[in-house]
Amino acid sequence: MGFITHCWKSAKAELRRLARWALGAWLLVASCAWAQTSVAELTELRAERRDAALYVTAQLKLELGPAVEDALVKGLAVHFVAEAEVMRDRWYWYDRKIGIATRYYRLAFQPLTRRWRLNVSNEPISGAGLGGSISQNFETLSEALGVIRRQSGWKVAEMAELDLDARQYIAYRFRLDISQLPRPFQIAAGNQAEWTLVASRQLRLTTDMVR
């Protein structure tokens, strides 16, 4: 009887040890997965008046998860869209749009040169229509993302279009545009957090900004 009791206590101790090990392993995997998730956070958004126009500057914390990076390395181009709208409050209807600035980014890896190409345009960029965009090549992915992270000097409205007595604000939004992915990738990406990159914020315009 004593032998059986001893064995049972040893088995319970072993089960507790295995449970602690399994929990630790799960927490380690979960923390690694969390650390590798794509990130898009707006760290700065400001507006300033220059030359009778209103300009916007935005700064992003932008990191791509392993699934997105792997797709890029395998030849898939990834598109981003950043948009800043100047809006005027209207209590009786939808807020009125005063001005807008939009940037389209196409990021791709070039296997032959092992370099990263970033196309930037004020118009939507298609796979075949890169002619109207500005193209830059980079040695590393981090360098290419650095251009996307820093968005400065966007003209969003003429000062003459703003109303000094009205309540106005800037609505900023940045996103990864999965609609530009091939159809099979669109379906798969729609269910993966790594591909759900969105950052948005509103900035209320003060009297000092519009005078």
Rank of each mutant, 00 (worst) to 15 (best):
S142V: 11
N137W: 14
F138T: 03
N122E: 14
S142L: 10
A128L: 13
T140C: 11
L176Y: 02
M159L: 15
G127A: 15
S135W: 07
E143R: 13
F138G: 02
A160C: 09
I170S: 05
K155F: 01
N137M: 13
D177R: 10
L145E: 06
I170K: 06
M159T: 10
S133I: 02
R150C: 02
N119I: 11
L141F: 07
P124W: 03
I125F: 07
Y172M: 11
P124A: 09
L181A: 06
Q168W: 00
I134N: 08
L130M: 12
A171I: 01
G132T: 10
R149M: 02
I170Y: 04
D163C: 10
G129E: 12
I178Q: 03
I134W: 08
L181C: 04
L181V: 01
A166D: 06
V156Q: 01
Y169Q: 07
E161Y: 05
S152K: 13
D165Y: 11
A157Q: 01
G132S: 13
V147S: 05
L162C: 06
S126D: 14
E158I: 02
N119F: 15
Y169H: 13
I148G: 03
G146D: 09
L176T: 07
I148Q: 04
Q180Y: 10
Q151Y: 03
V156C: 05
A166I: 01
E139K: 13
L130I: 08
Y169P: 00
F174R: 02
A157K: 01
T140Q: 11
A144L: 06
R173P: 00
I134D: 10
Q151R: 09
E123A: 12
V156P: 02
A144R: 05
E123T: 13
I170Q: 02
A171K: 12
R173A: 07
Q151E: 11
V156D: 04
R175V: 01
G127D: 15
Q180M: 15
I170P: 05
R175H: 09
P124R: 07
Q168K: 01
V147E: 10
T140N: 11
I178D: 00
G131V: 11
L145V: 08
I125N: 04
S142N: 14
S179W: 06
L164S: 15
S133N: 05
L145G: 00
S135V: 13
L176W: 03
L176D: 00
G146L: 06
Y172N: 03
A157P: 04
T140W: 11
I148P: 06
A160D: 14
I125S: 02
A128N: 12
F138W: 08
D165Q: 14
I178S: 02
S142I: 01
I134F: 08
G127L: 14
S121Q: 08
E143W: 06
N122M: 08
N137Q: 15
D163Q: 13
E161I: 02
G129F: 06
N137L: 14
R167C: 04
Y169V: 05
